[in-house]
Design a protein around this nucleic acid. Structure first.
Lengths: 336, 336
DNA sequence: TTGAAAGCGCTAACAG
DNA sequence: CTGTTAGCGCTTTCAA
C-alpha cells in the first residue's frame, strides 16, 4: 500500500492522479498553504490519497524549487572523544528542528583536510549556514571556505574576523564556583588552575578573584596553584593543598577534582569535612558518582549549540566585536 | 570573484557561459565522466571558469536529477549523555564519507515522537538507508516508519524482524576480560556483574565462564556478584569481594571498577598487588586516569558505526538471523 | 476554486 | 568532440 522498500517513492503526481486533482492542488493541501482556496471536498480526497499511498514529499525537490534549503551544517572537531561535542550537537539540533531545519553534521577530529571537505560538502548542499564548533573553548582561525556562507563559531572565537561567536562565560563560571564555597562559609579558598593557557584558565581565575573581592576577601596569589588538567594533576597537588591550610578548593575541572579526591583521601583528609571541593564542567560520569558527589559548575554546551543556531538564524543578537557569553550554572552536590 | 556571502550561488549555466561551452560539457568535466570525450582545450576553459567563479555544484539538484541520494541517516538515542554515541557517529561518518555519502544525524533522547519525526525527515530527504542506533546494547523494536527504507540496527537488535543488526560481541569480550586476569596468573577470579538483565549481562557472564573453562578452572557461582552498574555498585561490593578471597576481579564496566577502587582502598587493599581489577567499556575519562590506570576491554563503538554503514551499503555481509558481532579488544593498562 | 506551465540546477540520452 | 533536450519532484505565478 505505502512506499515500502521496493518500488520508487510515491510522488505528488501519483497522489494527484489518485485524487483526481492537479498536482498544484496537492502541493497546496500538503503544505497547507494559506492563500490557497481548496474545496473541502477536494482537500479531503487529496488527504486520503496521501495516506493511502504513503506519500512522503521529496524534501530535496522542494528545496530546489523553493530556493531555500533547510540544512544547517555543524562541523565539530571531536565528536568521538568527549561527551561535550555531543551536547553541542544535541542543543543545535533541537533548536534547528524547532525552526524547521535539519542538521548536517561532520566530524573532523581536528584534521584540516577533513574540515575542508566537510565545509565543501555543506556548501554543495546549500546549507543555510554553518556552525563551526570546538570541544573546548579556544581561539581558532576560521577556515577560508567558511566565508562562502554565513557561519557562527561555537565554543571558540576568531579574533581576526568579526564573525559571530558563542562561548561559555568562563569568568562568571569561576565566580559561581567560588561562591559555592564562599556561601558555605569558607574564606580561605585555594584555586587549582590548569597549566595550559586558555580562556578557561584566565577567565576562571578572574571569576575567582571577582568572587573573593565580592566577599571582601583579599586575593592571595599563593593560594592559586597550577596543575595538569587531568586526574593526575589534581592528585599531585594534594599535599600542597593540605599545607596551604585552606578549607575549600576550587578545581579547574572535574577531572582535577577527581584526582584531588584520591590525593586528599590518601592524606587522611575527608571531603567535605576537612576540605570542601568544587569542580568545573559537570562531567556526569565523574561528578555525579564521586564519593561524595561533586559540587561543580556546568559548562553550557547544550545552550552553546542552541544559541549558535539562534544567532545563525538571526533569532538572537550576538554582540559585535565580542563573543556572546553563555552563563555557567552551579550544580551543587555533596562536596561542599 | 567567488560566490561569497552575498549573491546567489554560481550555477553550471553561468560556468558554461563563461567558458563558452554548453552546460552539458560543464557537467561532464566537473564530474570527470569517463564516457565523455571533451577536448583538452574546452576542458581547460571549463576548469578555469569553475575556479574563477568559485562554482560549487548543487548537490541537491544533482540528487534530484540522478535519482540517487547520497544521504545516510543515523538516528541515535543519546548523543548527549555518553561519549559512546559519539563514537558510533564518528565511525559511521568516516565510513560513509569514504563511499561518498553524507550523514544526516538525528538525536532522539529516547523520545518516541522525536524518533518518528527524525525518521520522517530522513525519508523525506530520500536517504539511501538508515542506521538506527542505541547507546547501549539492547533489544529494541524498530519503529514502523523504518520499514519504508533499508536500515540496519546498530548496537541493538530486534528479534521480531529479520533486519540486519550489528552489535558488540559481549561473550567474546567477557572472555577477553577474564583472560587478562588469567594470563597474569590469577585463578580465583570474581565477576561483578550488573543487576539489570541485558545482552551485556548474560554475554559477559558466558564469556567469563568460557575463559575459566578454557583455563581448566571450575566455575564457582559464589564468585559472581550482582551490583548496580555504576560507581556506587562497585563500591558497595568491596567488602564481599575481599571476603571471597579472590585475587582478581572482572567488573561489568569501568564505572563499577571505579567504585570498587574506592571501596578496596578503604579496606586497605591495593591494586593490583592485593587484588587485580579489570573493567569493561574503556571509558577514557575514567579508565585511563584511575590510580592505577584500569585494564579493560573496549566496546567497539567506532567499528559498530562503520560496520553499520558497510552492511547498509551491501559492502559487508551480515549473517541472517543473528546480528553481526564485532569483537571487543583488550586494553591492558596497570590494574592487573 | 482549480489547473497549466514555467522553472529550480543538474544529469543523461540522443543528435549532430 | 559537443550541444540539445527532456526530465527529476516540487513551487508558484497566472489563467481559467
Amino acid at each position: 500500500m505505502s512506499a515500502d522498500r521496493a518500488g520508487q517513492p510515491i510522488t505528488m503526481r501519483q497522489v494527484a492522479e489518485a485524487a483526481g486533482v492537479s498536482i498544484a492542488t496537492v502541493s497546496y493541501v500538503v503544505n497547507d498553504k494559506k492563500g490557497a482556496r481548496i474545496g473541502p471536498e477536494a482537500r479531503q480526497r487529496v488527504l486520503d490519497a496521501v495516506k493511502e499511498l504513503g506519500f512522503r514529499p521529496n524534501a530535496l525537490a522542494k528545496t530546489l524549487s523553493s530556493g531555500s534549503s533547510n540544512f544547517i551544517g555543524l562541523v565539530a572537531d571531536a565528536i568521538a572523544t568527549t561527551p561535550f561535542a555531543g551536547q553541542i550537537i544535541h542543543g543545535a539540533q533541537d533548536e534547528a528542528w524547532k525552526h524547521g531545519y535539519v542538521l548536517l553534521v561532520a566530524n573532523t577530529e581536528g584534521d584540516l583536510a577533513a574540515e575542508e571537505a566537510a565545509i565543501s560538502m555543506m556548501l554543495e548542499h546549500k546549507v543555510r549556514g554553518i556552525l563551526y564548533s570546538t570541544w573546548y573553548h579556544r581561539a581558532v582561525t576560521a577556515p577560508p571556505a567558511l566565508h562562502e556562507t554565513e557561519y557562527v563559531l561555537v565554543d571558540c572565537f576568531d579574533t581576526a574576523t568579526p564573525a559571530p561567536a558563542v562561548v561559555p562565560d568562563e569568568r562568571e563560571g569561576g565566580n559561581v564556583a567560588t561562591r559555592l564555597l564562599l556561601n558555605a562559609g569558607h574564606t580561605r579558598i585555594a584555586f587549582v588552575n590548569t597549566t595550559t593557557p586558555s580562556p578557561a584558565r584566565s577567565g576562571r581565575l578572574a571569576g575567582y578573584r571577582d568572587a573573593l573581592q565580592g566577599a571582601g576577601i583579599a586575593f592571595d596569589p599563593t593560594l592559586v596553584l597550577d596543575a595538569a588538567p587531568e586526574q593526575e594533576g589534581g592528585y599531585a597537588v594534594a599535599g600542597r593543598i593540605r599545607d596551604l591550610g585552606v578549607t575549600g578548593v576550587f578545581c579547574h575541572n572535574d577531572r582535577v577534582a577527581m584526582g584531588l579526591y584520591d590525593g586528599l583521601r590518601e592524606l587522611g583528609l575527608t571531603i567535605p569535612n576537612d576540605i570542601a571541593v568544587v569542580g568545573f564542567d559537570n562531567q556526569e560520569v565523574i561528578a555525579a558518582h564521586l564519593r561524595p558527589p561533586l559540587s561543580t559548575v556546568a559548562l553550557p554546551h547544550y545552550e552553546l549549540g542552541a544559541a549558535g543556531v539562534r544567532v545563525l538564524l538571526g533569532l538572537q543578537e550576538a554582540p559585535t566585536g565580542a563573543p556572546l557569553a553563555i552563563s555557567c550554572p552551579p550544580v551543587p552536590r555533596a562536596s561542599v
